[in-house]
Amino acid sequence: MISKTTTSLYLLAVFLFSSAGTLSAQDNFANRYALGLNAGTTGIGGEITTNMTKKIAIRFGLNTLSYGDSGIYDDDEPSVSYSGDLSQTNFSLLADFYPKNRGFKITAGLYYQNFDIAASAVPNEAYTFNEGAVNEKVFGPERLGQLDVLVTYPRKLMPYAGLGFGNPVGNGSSLKLNMSLGLMYSGAPELTMNGDGLISPTTDQAVNFQEGLNEFEWFPVFNLGLSYRFIN
């Protein structure tokens, strides 16, 4: 089922790109270019758009996003210091098909995406076994150890299909508002969990998380952007 869907997306992308060349040869019009900025689930970035025919435009984009967070989780004992970094960079080559010569578009193409989330957790305080008992045992954070988690997509090249509004190289105002809504077939992300110290067996639970992540084979894309057509 998945391979069929993936194949269909590739075929759609190939169709749109090959149609662009064919239709460009049939139509007789001037090429337009537009530069745009956008933000959304693929990060923040820009793209350049050019029209191949009256109904087809090609976009090349670059988006990136990095985000870090850290803090202390103290609902449990021992409290835990955590830190995490999300890193996302992608290149896209997309073909937009405007069936009505208006803003509505059908899009297909490819993303090349690096996406990973790295996080680590370290006990923030000593932990005491048998507290108050004769053989009370205190373990310092170093002895308890550390957990490291990495979530990444093994697949880098991701076919995309979607819909949207706004034609950066269409008629009318040079400044356009654009919206894209679609899906990348990313395959399931992979999770690796490493640990050391006494808490290292905690990493056995990576299996449970991986089972959950196996459900996430589609990467949702929702981007909003502004573009400016600078060559008429």
């Binding site: 449990d76 006494l198 808490i199 056995d204 639970q205 449970n208 959950g212």
Partner: peptide, 13 residues
């Protein structure tokens, strides 16, 4: 499944 994994997560010694 992912919710269960989060809910059941525990530090194992």
């Amino acid at each position: 499944k992912i919710e269960d994994a989060v809910d059941n997560f525990s530090i194992v010694i």
